[in-house]
Design a protein around this nucleic acid. Sequence first.
RNA 1: GCCGAUGUAGCUCAGCCGGUAGAGCAACUGAUUCGUAAUCAGUAGGUCAGCGGUUCAAAUCCGCUCAUCGGCUCCA
Length: 639
Amino acid sequence: MEKITITLPDGSTEVHQAGESVREILSSRCGDAIASAVAARVNGQMVDLSRPVLEDSSVELVYISSTEGLGVLRHSISHIMAQAVQDIFKGVKVTIGPSIEEGFYYDFEYANTFTPEDLEKIEARMREIVSADHPFVRLEMSRKEAAAFFEKKGESYKVELINDLPDDVTDVSLYTQGDFVDLCRGPHIPSTGMITAFKLLNVAGAYWRGNEKNRMLQRIYGTGFATQEELASYLTLMEEAKKRDHRRLGRELDLFQLNDEVGPGLIIFHPKGTLLRTIIEDWERKEHLKRGYDIVMGPQILKVDLWKKSGHFEHYRENMYFTEVDDQAYGIKPMNCLSHMLIYKSKIRSYRDLPLRYFELGTVHRHEKTGVLHGLMRARQFTQDDAHILCRPDQLNTEIRAIADFVDYAMGVFGFSYEVELSTRPNGSIGSDADWDLATEALKLALEDNAMTYDINEGDGAFYGPKIDFKLKDALGRKWQCATIQCDFALPERFDLSYIGADGEKHRPVMLHRVILGAIERFMGVLIEHYAGAFPVWLSPVQTSILTVTDSQIPHGEKVYSRLLEAGVRCERDFRNEKLGYKIREGQMQKVPYMLVVGDREVESGTVSPRERDGGKNLGSMSIDDFIAVVREKCDGFE
RNA sequence: GCCGAUGUAGCUCAGCCGGUAGAGCAACUGAUUCGUAAUCAGUAGGUCAGCGGUUCAAAUCCGCUCAUCGGCUCCA
């Protein structure tokens, strides 16, 4: 028997027989620990504990506590779910069932639909499979054999998957637990009995292979954890997320409404929502002016011919609204670029004039499909903090880097971290390959110059150019696309934009489309959920509320109110005939940062007693001016 | 747009096997004048999403439409 050398995580080595399984190799060494391992990593590759090791290798155990280990567990649960589903329902075909960030899913083809009651039945059957403690067994077959095997079972999706494997794949692996067999790369946990905590969550439709031209399958989502406690805390977190839902908070905090009588995807901003929005917009204008942008404004509707010229009519028509005025066809703008192009064209431009940066808080309309609408996050009318930068090719790098810095600054101000993605040329786009390459390279280079790490999203660019997307992460770790930078050679070409170079000849400028917060509506939605409605002082539409103890302090309360308004503090009065505790409770639920208690003591000394929302601390009585200073300090650097 | 679920008072929800609607909170009115998360009492509030069908009778059963929610595809 051949001997092999095994390197352990601590760097030590052992000699073993070739062909011993990972479990055999590590059992003496790791003792009890191996019982809680779900899989192993051999030379960096994830494998089953039962996998034989044939050559010199480094070997380590993978536990549920690691992200990968949890993924293995969840993936195994998805197999058990598939088994349970096929046990209970006849005529179900299996497709794919991966683990995902928060759990797992499995897609099935089934003539009937799964109901919530079915999920309970499936869960019950899964528990039986778990207690039967079936081992997960790996089988290897040639792809031909495997295809024939699944063909015979009528599992046509599996056959399709096998047939679509790259040509150089000769063998595939299958996993069985009990009498269930599935095509699968693995690895899996040793046996079904290892599972302690799982729950099926919901049923949803999903296209086969994510393509809307394909058949719609039924997807069952579930999740699993190492312990019941972790599962319970996950479910609690979901409840918390629900409480932060911006649609719910929007109503509770009286920020905005979505009304059926108005129409889907159309938002009415109430006074407080409008105030919040105005604060953000004022901040934007100031920050843009600081960075050398010019603020501009274009019309809401532009003639259809102009949209034909830009390419939007051809490439974006399904998302546009059209109208007619005096027998003339108009398109309602889904993007703000056209007016900006015409501003550029209104004069002859010199190379010395560039870059020109046109900024518009531009309201656009897009006909979004009904199924995607979602409160403020996905609306049919929204306002972008949009800008178009026209520059010389040699300025591209500096401009892109400056935008990336701007985004970085803005995310810091609002308290978000973010990730960066670069999206390349999609199908059906306009422009030459050379320009696309140039633009893509420019974006890439700027990111690298700024030392930003990024992922590449192949084929996900806009129809006119590649883009950098910034996905911000909120307090619950959810990601939202907000900022984007898009590089565009096509529109300057279509509009025949030019500048006079140092050589006295005409040259073509390059254009950057970019947003920092994205859509103000979406950004507000994200902010609401991020802060759970408890905005920092500088953003709070109501910064303070004055609470009288009894009616007799109303005159003093009014005085405080007008002093605060005058000082620019956003302020409300709660002079109702209610007990102080009642008013405080309400102010707390309305998430007002400071409540100013005004009782006889304050009247006498001409002061206020602020109570902090966060922590409920009573700051004691202070003069009105001192309180104004407290608010100003909290807003310092933002406004 | 696709798959599924849901739609009852401002909000959260109850309303069984069909017999013309109910609670809590909110609102309003009155009393109370109160010191850091809910004072008491009373009043009002519903074309049961809309339209059509079945039935002696529909919130309840059936169909269509609209909207919302969870996903898929798409996206700021």
